[in-house]
Amino acid sequence: MASISGGSSRRTLLGLLPALLATRRALADQHDPALADLFARLRGADAVEAPAIEAQIRAIWYRHPDRIATSLLDEGVVLLSDRQWSAAYRRFDELVQRAPDFAEAWNQRATAAFLLDELDTAVRDIQRTLALEPRHFEALARLGEALLKLGQPEVALRAFEAALAIHPTMANVRRRADEVQARLFGRDI
């Protein structure tokens, strides 16, 4: 292996640094290489550490190199928080048309569809989210909730368990999985 301590090699690497950094910034959502380490840390994190790691993952998921896509996402999230679910759905619909490979676009549209009780649409959008980002614990948890509403508790339990395998400290999801398991198998929680 060649040493990089020589002046010429060092200048070459330093010359490539801006391009490498620009590439790093251009990476968005599910393609960011930092996610692998964050997910590994999340699996082993306790309830105190997990929220900070989750926040880092979400920050990456919410990034997109297209400013308009980012703006549509931000606007839709604000509409969701204002309980304007139909308007949020329309905003996220624009977003998935503009950025069909952006997992968070599909996840947010699934959220709006779920809140509108459009469960089949929510499930389809969650499936698209998971095709793009199979580690999307939030999408898996929402899939569990949608499947419960659709009367499929066994499949819902598998979705909850898959979410917990990725993010073991999600207390609400753990509680829901325990409730479904108790209902299915007649055990007290």
Rank of each mutant, 00 (worst) to 15 (best):
1 M>G: 15
2 A>K: 14
9 S>K: 11
10 R>M: 15
11 R>K: 15
12 T>N: 13
13 L>F: 15
15 G>M: 11
15 G>F: 07
16 L>F: 13
17 L>K: 07
18 P>W: 08
18 P>R: 08
20 L>S: 12
23 T>V: 13
24 R>L: 11
26 A>G: 11
27 L>M: 14
28 A>N: 08
29 D>E: 12
39 F>D: 06
40 A>W: 03
41 R>M: 06
43 R>G: 11
43 R>D: 04
45 A>P: 08
45 A>Q: 08
46 D>H: 08
47 A>M: 07
49 E>A: 13
49 E>K: 10
49 E>Q: 14
50 A>M: 06
52 A>M: 07
52 A>I: 00
53 I>K: 00
55 A>P: 00
56 Q>D: 13
62 Y>G: 05
62 Y>T: 09
63 R>A: 09
64 H>L: 06
65 P>T: 02
66 D>M: 06
68 I>N: 12
72 L>N: 03
73 L>T: 00
73 L>R: 12
75 E>H: 11
80 L>T: 05
83 R>K: 15
87 A>E: 15
88 A>Y: 02
89 Y>A: 14
92 F>R: 03
95 L>H: 04
99 A>P: 04
100 P>N: 06
100 P>C: 10
101 D>K: 13
105 A>H: 02
106 W>R: 02
111 T>P: 02
111 T>W: 05
112 A>D: 05
112 A>M: 05
118 E>F: 07
120 D>T: 12
121 T>S: 12
122 A>I: 03
125 D>K: 00
129 T>F: 03
133 E>F: 13
133 E>M: 06
133 E>K: 10
134 P>Y: 07
134 P>C: 03
134 P>G: 08
134 P>Q: 09
136 H>C: 03
141 A>L: 01
142 R>G: 00
143 L>Y: 05
144 G>R: 01
147 L>P: 00
147 L>C: 00
148 L>Q: 11
153 P>Q: 07
153 P>Y: 06
154 E>L: 09
157 L>D: 02
159 A>I: 03
160 F>D: 04
160 F>S: 05
163 A>G: 04
163 A>H: 00
164 L>E: 08
165 A>C: 02
169 T>M: 11
171 A>F: 08
171 A>E: 14
173 V>N: 01
176 R>A: 14
180 V>T: 15
185 F>D: 09
186 G>I: 06
186 G>K: 07
187 R>A: 13
187 R>I: 12
